[in-house]
Amino acid sequence: MKQYSPLERALEYIEEHLNDNIGLNEVSKETGYSYYYMTRLFTSVLGESVGRYINRRKLYNASRKLIDTDERVLDIAVDCGFASSEAFSRAFKSEFGSSPAEYRKAGADLVVNAKRELVPEDVYHIAHNISRSPEIIMTDETKVAGVRGTTSLSDNRIPEIWKQFLLFPKELFDGADVGYGICETKRAVYTRDGDVLFTVMAAGAVDTFESLPRTLDRKILSAGKYAVFTHRGTFANLHRTYRYIFGTWLKTAGEELDDREDFEMYQRKIVSYDDPDNEVKIFIPIK
């Protein structure tokens, strides 16, 4: 019997209930994984939120019906899970640039496939820039302090947050060239247009929180078991590494994700965002 990854199970459930009123809550319950990891899986592998993915799949089905059937627009809207023809028309025009009626009249086929496939660049990256078999380690609790900021799928502000953090004296932290990047998707907020806002921390390790500048945010990284991957090369390709971890490795590893935050640890001095010699270790919490 085929073993499905959490993402595959989520996608299968969505396809089977595409015309129902489902969202992140139902998908999380079906897979047995938390909001946090369902958010992480979808944003890392597919580059969009659960809500936007479901909406795009509904619109895909609707677009096919507009071209392949004579059903009324209202009936198609209801069949595809939209509350009204107005809501359907707004969503359809936002996605395809034309109303359902205009789309049908033109006989256009502008369908967007929401399931992202591996491209040759992904395959090369996996083969040359990722430690495909992670190191499994146990870590102690780690205190970190740094700068917290808000970013989103559509507006990446992470480089700006790192620039702010690097303005602080290195002497405040243990290990001058060691930094931590924590993507706090447990704090994720879904916007009406399907985007995801979440907080990110750029930080360094500290022995104690006492005597630190008030402008530094504090956080404790949980102790526990982690699968540690190494990413090499430009940080512009970090998303490819996360696609591999959540979309490929997790599927066959036989490991179960734990409901702690994953984080990144930078052990070399970062010269630039696009430096091909960059290296970062990615800690994925497992049970």
Rank of each mutant, 00 (worst) to 15 (best):
M1R: 01
L7C: 03
E8V: 02
R9G: 15
R9P: 00
E12P: 01
L18Q: 11
L18N: 06
L18W: 07
N19S: 14
D20Q: 14
I22A: 02
L24Q: 10
E30I: 01
T31Y: 07
Y33F: 13
Y35G: 01
Y36H: 13
F42E: 04
F42P: 06
T43M: 08
S44A: 15
L46E: 12
L46V: 01
S49E: 02
S49F: 02
G51S: 12
I54N: 06
R56K: 07
R56W: 00
K58S: 09
N61V: 00
A62E: 02
A62P: 03
A62Q: 04
D68M: 11
V73E: 15
L74T: 14
I76Q: 05
I76S: 05
I76M: 09
V78P: 01
V78A: 02
D79M: 00
D79V: 02
D79E: 12
G81L: 02
F82V: 07
S84M: 10
A87K: 15
A87V: 11
F88R: 12
R90L: 12
A91P: 05
K93V: 02
S94N: 05
E95H: 11
S99R: 08
A101H: 12
E102S: 14
Y103V: 04
A106Y: 03
A106K: 14
A108L: 14
V111M: 09
V111S: 15
V112Y: 08
A114F: 06
K115Q: 11
L118W: 11
P120R: 09
V123H: 10
Y124N: 13
H125S: 10
H125K: 05
H125Y: 15
I126K: 11
A127H: 13
S133K: 08
P134C: 01
M138I: 05
M138E: 15
D140C: 03
E141H: 07
S152N: 05
I158A: 08
E160D: 12
E160W: 02
I161V: 11
W162T: 01
F165W: 03
P169M: 03
E171C: 01
L172A: 03
G175P: 06
G175E: 04
A176P: 05
V178H: 06
G179S: 12
Y180A: 13
G181R: 08
G181K: 10
C183V: 14
E184M: 15
R187K: 14
R192A: 10
G194C: 08
V196H: 01
L197V: 04
T199I: 04
V200T: 14
A203M: 13
A203F: 13
A205K: 14
V206E: 07
S211E: 11
L212M: 14
R214G: 15
T215I: 08
L216A: 07
D217C: 08
K219M: 15
I220G: 01
I220S: 15
L221A: 12
Y226F: 10
V228H: 03
T230G: 04
G233M: 13
F235M: 09
N237Y: 02
N237E: 05
H239R: 07
T241L: 14
R243P: 06
R243N: 06
W249H: 00
K251Y: 02
A253K: 04
A253R: 05
G254E: 06
E256G: 11
E256Y: 05
E261H: 00
Y266C: 09
Q267W: 02
K269A: 07
D274P: 00
E279W: 00
V280L: 05
K281E: 12
I282H: 00
I284E: 01
K287D: 15
K287N: 15
